[in-house]
Amino acid sequence: MNIFRLTGDLSHLAAIIILLLKIWKSRSCAGISGKSQILFAMVFTTRYLDLLTAYISLYNTSMKIIYIGCSYATVYLIYAKFKATYDGNHDTFRVEFLVVPVGGLSFLVNHDFSPLEILWTFSIYLEAVAILPQLFMISKTGEAETITTHYLFFLGLYRALYLINWVWRFYFEGFFDMIAIVAGVVQTILYCDFFYLYVTKVLKGKKLSLPA
């Protein structure tokens, strides 16, 4: 465990909590893509099946349970408790265009052709693109609430910090996982346009709105 990995995990946790609190406090999930949140719930479910088969550490187990729990809670708030505020008309990304190719790729390119390993690979590939419905929704409406941009910032920062963690682990531990690294690079690149807008607009006190 190095500082980049730890701050990456904490950044991920911050993103998840920010989103939950935003929805809970405002009693509204306006501007949030339920589709992205369902994809993230699928990501955590398929990746953390090893909770049942392997013990790594108390930290590892606790964080996995927290991530899964918060993820399902978020989906519940969007599709049940605050369903009336869900902006389904703008959440129109076709998720089958992500899930089907990602599913196929996880069968073709994996470390080991076993059910758990294929599901882990699926979760890594799916996570890389799971934010697309949310970014699509923002591009469609042309704006995002500031709190939603904080959520996206921490979510993007998390994978960027993991990239530094992987460089660290390669140099100091000789460890690398090509599947995670390539997917992590793709995932981080998808946030670059958003990072630019976050720094040039939101951090200067302006609302994130896109030109028409």
Partner: peptide, 10 residues
């Protein structure tokens, strides 16, 4: 092929 080690990251 790479060895499928336990995935210790989140």
């Amino acid at each position: 092929a790479e060895e499928a080690a336990a995935h210790d990251e989140l």
